[in-house]
Design a protein around this nucleic acid. Structure first.
Lengths: 122, 122
DNA sequence: TGTCAATATACCCGTAATGGAATATACCTG
DNA sequence: CAGGTATATTCCATTACGGGTATATTGACA
C-alpha cells in the first residue's frame, strides 16, 4: 500500500479509533463494538475496508474474528501508525477508548481468549 | 483542524505532492502546474481545498498567488507533515518533484520573487 | 441436523470528492 | 479603458464513501 492508500485508511474517524486501539494489541469485533459504541455493521465494514487494503489482518477463533495490525508494516506505515499513537495521546476520544479497553479485558494484550472476559460465554 | 481533517487533506495524491513541495518553502500556482504537470484547474482546486481547511495560506503578489504552509501548525499537523517529508524521501515521485523544483527556481527558498525565474516576465 | 451467536455482505440512499470544460475574476500594463 | 496573464469558480458527470436495514455466512454446540 502506498502513502496515499495509508492516508485513505486514516481519514475516517472510526477507522482511526480502530487503528489506535489495535496499537495495544489484537482485538475482536465485539470488543470494537463495545468500545466504539458503534453498530456492528459499521465496525465490520470499516474493518473490512482496512483488511482489503492490507492494513490489518484477521484470524478466526471460533465464532470470533480477531483483528490485528499487519505483522510487517512498511516503513511508511510504521511511521504513520507511530504518529497516530503520538497524536492520540492528547485526544480525549482516543483516551476514552483506551479506558474502555482496559475495563473490558484487563490483561488481554498477550493472552488469547479474546472474548472470554467481555461476553457472557455460557 | 482535527486529526481526521488532517488525514483527509493528505489522502489525495496531488495534495500530498503539493504539501510535500511546500515543505521546501512558499510556491505559486504556476510552479505547481509545472512541477506536478497537472492542469491549472486541478492544481487550483486542490490548493483551494487545502486553504479552506486551514492547511495552507495564500498571499497575492500581483498576478500570482503564493501558497505556503500554515505559519503555526498544531502539534498534530506538524507531526504529520514531518512524517510526510520523511516518507517522501524514499518515493521516486516526490523526489522527481523536488528535482523539478530545483530546476525551476534555484535558490527560491527564501527569496521572494517567486515567478521571476520560472516565467517569461516581460 | 437444528439453533444460536458472531460476523460479513448486499442493497439502497444521500452526500462528498474528483476531474474536466468553460467561464469568471483579479491584477498588470500600455 | 483594452488586452493579456494568472488564478479561481461554476457546471457537469462520474465515482467513491459512509451509514442503515435486511440478509447471508460461519462456526459452536446440543
Amino acid at each position: 500500500m502506498d502513502l496515499v492508500g495509508i492516508y485513505q485508511c486514516l481519514c475516517d474517524r472510526t477507522r482511526l479509533r480502530i487503528l489506535h486501539l489495535l496499537g495495544q494489541g489484537p482485538l475482536c469485533v465485539c470488543h470494537f463494538q463495545k468500545i466504539l459504541q458503534e453498530p456492528q455493521v459499521k465496525v465490520s465494514k470499516h474493518l473490512g475496508y482496512l483488511r482489503a487494503r492490507g492494513m490489518v489482518r484477521s484470524d478466526r477463533r471460533g465464532n470470533w474474528m480477531i483483528y490485528s495490525l499487519q505483522a510487517k508494516p512498511s516503513r511508511e506505515l510504521a511511521a504513520n501508525l507511530a504518529c497516530l499513537q503520538d497524536c492520540a495521546r492528547e485526544d480525549p476520544v482516543f483516551q476514552r477508548d483506551l479506558e474502555r479497553l482496559r475495563k473490558l479485558s484487563p490483561g488481554f494484550a498477550e493472552s488469547s481468549p479474546c472474548c472470554r472476559a467481555a461476553t457472557v460465554h455460557r
